[in-house]
Design a binder for these strands. Sequence first.
DNA 1: CTCATTTGACCGGC
DNA 2: GCCGGTCAAATGAG
Length: 361
Amino acid sequence: MENYGADNNGELNRIISELTQGKDLVHQLQLQLNAPYSSSSSSPETTRDFLLHNIQSKFDKALSLLQYSTGDTSNSLLPHSNSVPIPYFGRSESPPSFTASPPHSEDSDRDLEPKDPATRKRKSNTPRWTKQVQICPGVPVEGTLDDGFNWRKYGQKDILGAKYPRGYYRCTLRHVQGCLATKQVQRADEDPTIFEVTYRGRHTCNQGGGNANNNVMNPEPLTIIPQNQEQNLGAGSRNEHQQIVSEPQQNPQEILLNFQRNLNISNDNNFNFNTDPNNVPFSTFASSSDIKSDQDYSFVPNSIIQSNNFVESFSPSYNFGMSSNSEMNNFGGKQNGSNDYQFNSMGYESNFPFDYQGFSS
DNA sequence: CTCATTTGACCGGC
DNA sequence: GCCGGTCAAATGAG
């Protein structure tokens, strides 16, 4: 589905070059980290910071090149990317023919008193955008797709004409901060490995490093990928765009994904290149909550598989801090004080709340 | 005990 | 009346 012309070959070489340099830099960083205590001229921290900065720069550049080259969807490196916004997505969505819901939520108690009629109106004119996420076949989906936000499932429904039920999620900070962002997740009929994630509303919460605006505009730039875990992707809040995360099929993707596979960062702060790429299944994104302390993690620049509209950069926000959100939404089990590695630039971990049972039935 | 998920029921648009 | 979206009690996990 992709045809790479001569121009793209040139771009591709540049991308490869950048990634290769980045890989070398990672290796250097690994040596730095492994070194007991180098008596070099500069302090270890300075050297590491320097290397880190360069690595980020290389990745950034490669991503920019990649996304620049994917600007033309006909030559897209993203098999199903669609740079065209799709304001209303789905087989059953109604046009925005009625007035907007008032800002207050629909959480009022329907049993105690009549609801404000408007409270249950569909949020038809709230921002809506869809992304498609493809998972690795055979890999359990029971985990999460990390989009940098914490979601809580509030419903699931069988949709007419759809094989799989649709899951409904809302921001966990809905009650705390009045964030009205919601999302719907549905497995595609045609390809069960593809999930359609429809986001509605903007995050007004402080998830994502406390910058709501940043949340709104930033899809997930970077996701941590524990090996042997399920895919963990999602969109940050951004007005109307579509994304697809797809399995590598063409050279550039393979290159990048091999790169991803080979680049790990382990929990002891060591960067590693896997010697065996087969060790890391593709797209084994995982719930942050599933991350075990002794696991290796793979950096995956989600931006390379995102909308063509973006030129993402690796944000150096490798926040290894703990999530302090008391309303953590850890689907598949609660989590209290476990290590939440925050690799999103938004500085927040979240789980993609897939209910595998629901989506696999 | 707390909190997230499940699931049947309800609500509102069409 | 149908259907999608949401609510909230029940349930279960940690």
